[in-house]
Design a protein around this nucleic acid. Structure first.
Length: 368
DNA sequence: TACCCGTGGCA
DNA sequence: TTGCCAAGGGT
């Protein structure tokens, strides 16, 4: 428990710990609004190490808001390829153009204006306002919720509305004026480095205020709500090769991987072999009559609530036209292997391309 | 308000 | 292998 007359000591312990243990991250070099914004969007639901890799590459490509606004959406998505949750990239792009048009190219500093940007919710608005502009705003993410669920031994699901409100209110009451940049980051850093899923209580600077620690039930907090279970699926897909070129199609603008390019394919149904499935899927999606010549790879990858196993084939046209009738795409192309680099693909399909590119056996295909 | 939206690391 | 989940937001 943190009593009113104890708040200052708690904050000092937390900030003192942070000043010693904060990680050296690229966006902590200088807290320009643009860099803070991009880092916050990139880190949503993303592991730190991957975020850093994409962040550095992104800054090389888009050094400022204007550079993002100037870019075509395809180039923005290409820079985001492999990171997932691609609406983040689309919203970043929209927001950049909005900042150029509505804010004269200057990143807005008013909380309401930041919050109004597409892709910016309560957490991100608070993070940008506090970290970039030193405003006294809270930034409650899953780290902070976990830390508070233990400090205050919250014994009901942390995602419940009342609990979220309590965490937000409590964070606000603890927030030291003028130090929100440090305080918010310290709380999140504590959740990431010490008070993680597996708690490392001996390292904790605020252990003496932790109710769950006192009760010996740290590992029972936070109380989680049931997640949607992961569904394993078997998928058939592959390279349809014709005159040295590979068939790709562009996915619809709605749903998963909106607007991404892909190789046709789909789920293997009950009682069906992978070869039968890939033939059926090509027929349904393109009206191509294809024949599998060879199995070229098995790729595993997860997305949203699925864990997919991709059975990948080298396919040929059995006959007829090389002009598809598209039923699951807005556009299609026949491209050389090397040209695939320029298209934005779902991670599983990109993985397949990378595997083929790295294999001596398929050099003839790459030369085509 | 549930549900959708990706991905790879880790135990 | 399988489940869990990492600096959430939009609808």
């Amino acid at each position: 428990m943190i009593h009113d007359d104890d708040k200052e000591r708690f904050v000092q312990a937390l900030l003192g710990w942070f000043s010693v243990n904060m990680r050296d991250l690229p966006w902590r070099r200088d807290y320009t609004p643009y860099r803070v914004w991009v880092s916050e969007i990139m880190l949503q639901q993303t592991q730190m190490e991957r975020g850093v890799t994409y962040f550095n590459r992104w800054m090389g490509r888009f050094p400022d808001v204007a550079a993002v606004a100037r870019a075509a959406e395809n180039d923005v998505l290409k820079a985001w390829e492999g990171l997932g949750y691609y609406s983040r990239a689309r919203n970043l792009h929209r927001a950049a153009r909005l900042i150029m048009q509505e804010h004269g190219g200057v990143f807005p500093c008013r909380y309401e204006d930041i919050r109004a940007l597409p892709g910016v919710g309560d957490y991100t608005a608070g993070a940008i306002a506090s970290i970039a502009f030193q405003q006294d705003a809270v930034a409650v993410d899953a780290n902070v919720e976990r830390v508070f669920s233990r400090l205050f031994d919250i014994d009901t699901p942390i995602k419940e509305k009342e609990n979220a409100a309590f965490v937000r209110h409590t964070a606000q009451s603890l927030l030291p004026r003028g130090k929100a940049r440090l305080f918010n980051q310290a709380l999140m850093e504590l959740g990431a480095l010490v008070c993680g899923k597996k708690a490392r209580c001996p390292l904790c600077p605020v252990q003496q205020w932790c109710e769950a620690f006192r009760l010996g039930i740290v590992q029972e907090r936070p109380v989680l709500t049931a997640r949607k279970s992961i569904v394993p699926i078997e998928v058939a897909t592959g390279f349809l090769v014709h005159q040295g070129r590979i068939f790709i199609q562009k996915r619809p603008e709605m749903g998963v991987w909106a607007g991404f390019w892909e190789f046709p394919g789909g789920c293997i149904e009950q009682g069906e072999t992978a070869e039968e499935a890939v033939r059926r899927e090509f027929m349904e999606e393109t009206e191509f009559d294809v024949v599998p010549r060879e199995k070229i790879a098995v790729v595993r990858h997860g997305y949203t609530t699925y864990r997919a196993t991709l059975h990948c084939y080298l396919l040929e046209l059995r006959g007829g036209s090389d002009v598809p009738v598209l039923h699951a795409a807005t556009e299609s192309r026949w491209v050389r292997f090397a040209e695939l680099d320029g298209y934005t693909l779902p991670a599983g399909h990109r993985k397949l391309v990378d595997m083929m590119a790295g294999s001596l056996q398929w050099q003839w295909l790459q030369g085509g």
